[in-house]
């Protein structure tokens, strides 16, 4: 492994680590979501009627492991594998 290949591996690992950190920071959901359920505040009348907070769907992208994080990590692995192959030291055959 030459120096350039080492850089490729370090960069790939760093990108994968960042992707995983961002995924965990987004709640570590398995599947990406387009929205979240938010509890709505109760009116005085609803409270008097013994009601519990109702849920309302609010559009908000939540990064999940699948497909977004997994696709990004796969792309990083694929590109770095190609670079790793391209950047390998070519052996020059010495004339006999």
């Amino acid at each position: 492994m030459n120096k350039k290949q080492k850089y490729v591996i370090v960069a790939a690992l760093a990108l994968i680590a960042i992707a995983l950190v961002v995924w965990v920071a987004n709640g570590g959901e398995i599947l990406s979501k387009d929205g979240v359920w938010i509890e709505q505040p109760l009116s005085d009348l609803d409270k008097a009627l013994g009601q519990q907070p109702k849920l309302d769907f609010t559009e908000q992208f939540i990064l999940g492991l699948f497909p977004h994080t997994a696709v990004f990590v796969s792309a990083v692995v694929f590109v770095s594998a190609i670079l790793f192959f391209i950047l390998k030291t070519k052996k020059i055959q010495e004339p006999k």
């Binding site: 959901e29 398995i30 599947l31 359920w37 109702k54 849920l55 769907f57």
Partner: peptide, 8 residues
């Protein structure tokens, strides 16, 4: 374990 689902 895989996912929590809420439906209304």
């Amino acid at each position: 374990p895989l996912e929590d689902i809420t439906g209304v």
